[in-house]
Nucleic acid binder design. Sequence first.
RNA 1: GGGCUCAUAGCUCAACUGGAUAGAGCAACAGCCUUCUAAGCUGUAGGUUCGGGGUUCGAAUCCCUGUGGGCUCACCA
Length: 575
Amino acid sequence: MKDFKKTVAEKIFDVKLISDNMDFDSVYMNVEVPTDNKMGDYAFPCFKLAKIFKKAPQAIAGELKDSINCGDEIDRIKNVNAYLNFYLRRELLVGEVVNGAIEENEKFGSSDIGENRKVIVEFSAPNIAKPFHIGHIRSTVIGNSINNIYSFVGYDTVRINHLGDYGTQFGKMIVAYRKWGNREDVEKEPIKTLLTYYTKFHEESESDPSLENDAREAFMKLEQGSEDETKLWQWFRDESLKEFNRVYTMLGIEFDSYAGESFYSDKMQRCLDELKEKNLLQESEGAQIVDLEEFGLGKALITKKDGSTLYITRDIAAAIYRKEHYDFYKNLYIVASQQNLHFQQWIKIIELMGYPWAHDCVHIPFGLVSLEEGTMSTRSGRVVFLEDVLKKAVEQTKQIIEEKNVTTDDVEEIADAVGIGAVIFNELSNNRIKDYVFSWGKILSFDGETGPYVQYSHARAASVLRKAPEESAKVANGEIKIDAKYLTSDRAYELSKLIYKLPQVIIEAADKYEPSVVTRHIIDIAQTFNRFYQDEYILVDGLDERAAKLGLVIAAKTAIRNGLGLLGIKAPEKM
RNA sequence: GGGCUCAUAGCUCAACUGGAUAGAGCAACAGCCUUCUAAGCUGUAGGUUCGGGGUUCGAAUCCCUGUGGGCUCACCA
């Protein structure tokens, strides 16, 4: 779509006084969007020019206003104090947006700035044999959305679920299972049962510290490839994945690779050798460390005194493997902010190893989820299961559908889309970095700035289009051209501008690794659409006007649907 | 104690990265369903942007400092 900001910048740059003193880019950069629609579409503040011209900025604004040639694109210019406010010819922008959105359809909002470069998105990464709880939703849903966004702006993405399927904890699990476990119970309810063993292990080890040693030994054997331990571990892993996949299916999330920590077990030695060869390893209290004190990053423990590895070793090995295997442009990690130090440490180590791509590895942190009773704790049973949250949200949606007597055969399908959409949307509506307290009340509220509100707006648009099926179809396939002069009211124009902005917003979300930017924007679109819907009757008698309005409805619907898609949320036609 | 991070309306959060009168939703109150879906729309009320300095034509945003919360600081991940 046409860049109207550039048009405005060009008009300003056409003035000789400006082009003599500034380059085009800095003019372009200084053009901004005013806080209030009444103040026009674009604004140019003249404060900075005051120094160059040694004149009051208000006076400069006044002079510039008279020397700018509006041409066909700009309707008028007003100078307010030190600002120059530009008002575009509305039908130009509206025509551009509505036709653009209709033509591009499911691609509307996308771009090709990624140039097909490879981006790895590591997300979700739950620990196997442990419950998939509400704390895991963040990495899962944020990561999925970042993947969608990167793919939409033209990157070739790879989704990796770096399962927590290795480490001393599995030594503990193996010891516990041998002592107290039985096969049938595990097969009936894998994670819950395994969890009871794990909890029992911790209880017992308080009075019997030798258990900890047994666990370390069991993990050491596992790492060395001992058959018995490997078999057990493999079984725990398979059973756990079955449960995780149930949740992923509900969320509509897929992965390209489930290469978890265990995948790198045979790549660890090479990594240790390399560290040694590059003189980075030191011995300390029997363990192997990399000293990062001079960078203010403490000491990184690479192997324990019994020689077994830790997760930092596995992350280093994984990064090297990924660079060789995928040759990524960027390698993104959607992992809680608790692990900031861990990421700083290993990325620094990669850098010290002499790999220039160290800084293409990016940790994308997010804040902590806690419960009203305190932080979540698997061991003490203070935990809310993600599956329960999703189910409850779907149930509540069903109830609401019944109360409202929605006429449809697909109650189940709609309830799934709306209930699960509500949970995902809630997760993606705030800045990643914010901590929050989980609350049933908030997650089950469907009024105001929520997923159901946005989906409802979409369904409303769909409903209007259904009332005029032939015409809508013709507008949608380009048989009827819309006349933008019917869409110049304040509401219609405001809506058009928000839709126009969507592609830029998506790029911004990619730059910031921040899905909430998209979430916020589609709330704005939905809100403005609802106001438009309220203020202006769409199915008017005049054929041209009706077609134009249907065009805008299609454009708004397209924008909302594509935006929701990036968040991983469905957009039902009815609800 | 060191490092990282957060603090904006009663509550949950925005604010185009330094711009104009700091905006939404929830909760409260008052209205709107005999034309397209009321999971909606309109209006009222609600602010010393944690305190104190500084830089700037201009600060919620940048710098210094204090306070308060969260995370983290070697054999867990």
